[in-house]
Computed example of a mutant assay.
Amino acid sequence: MAQLYFYYSAMNAGKTTALLQSSYNYQERGMRTVLYTADMNSRDNRYKQIKSRIGLYASARAFNIKTNFFDQIVTIHQKDIIHCVLVDECHFLNRNQVIDLSKIVDVLNIPVLCYGLRTDFRADLFSGSLWLLAWADKLIELKTICYCGRKSNRVLRIDDKGLIIRDGNQILIGGNNRYVSVCRKHFVEQLESPLSLTKRVYKNR
């Protein structure tokens, strides 16, 4: 039976790498996959490239807040059978889109694998993560580590000087220059510290 999976983690845990590996495993067995990734500025179904930090990449359909996943997959599936749908940056999904993905599983019997963050830089749930936690059949945590060696389950937002940013919009696209994954203990400590993250890391070693 097909299921809806939510693979979640802090940043830099290899979510995109895991997604691309799963897609490759299907394709290696002659099965067709459809990949999606977020493009908040796109108004059409144009293609984007999903690329992992270790250099793996693949073409994917762009989704935004207006994307109807169920209708798109029904249309594609009628022309050429789909064996799996994979969604990168699924934390940007909204409630209706998570329900759409559930319908793909329940009505079309196609497994859907979603990969994304659980919480933002304030430790608040993203919309997509909230509804996937409620609707997904399987919840799988992908693990990475804090600079202290503990499991990272929080993300800090930093500026160019390594200072912690405590307020702002939930969505700010960036990589290692803007976000650092840490454990809960150091998430709380960093938010209360006047020092830059770089100095705090050095001090804790």
Rank of each mutant, 00 (worst) to 15 (best):
L56D: 07
I81C: 05
G128W: 01
G162W: 09
L163G: 04
I54Q: 08
A136K: 08
L101Y: 03
N177L: 13
E89R: 09
R61E: 11
Q27G: 12
K48H: 07
Y24P: 02
A136I: 06
Y202V: 15
E89G: 10
S42G: 05
Y57T: 11
G116K: 01
N176K: 13
I73H: 00
G55F: 12
L132S: 05
I164L: 09
S193V: 10
C114P: 01
L191Q: 14
K185Q: 13
Y147V: 03
Y115T: 02
N68C: 08
W135N: 13
T37F: 06
F70Q: 05
L133P: 00
H83A: 13
V74T: 09
V74L: 13
N45G: 10
Q49V: 14
K51G: 02
A134I: 13
V85L: 10
I76D: 11
L19S: 04
S193T: 14
Y5C: 09
H77I: 00
I158L: 10
V85C: 13
F126K: 01
V85Y: 08
Q21C: 08
F70D: 00
K79T: 07
I173W: 03
G174N: 04
Y147L: 06
Q49S: 05
A62K: 10
R46Y: 00
C114E: 02
F92I: 06
E141D: 09
Q27A: 08
V107E: 15
G116L: 02
N204F: 12
G175M: 05
V98Q: 02
Q27M: 12
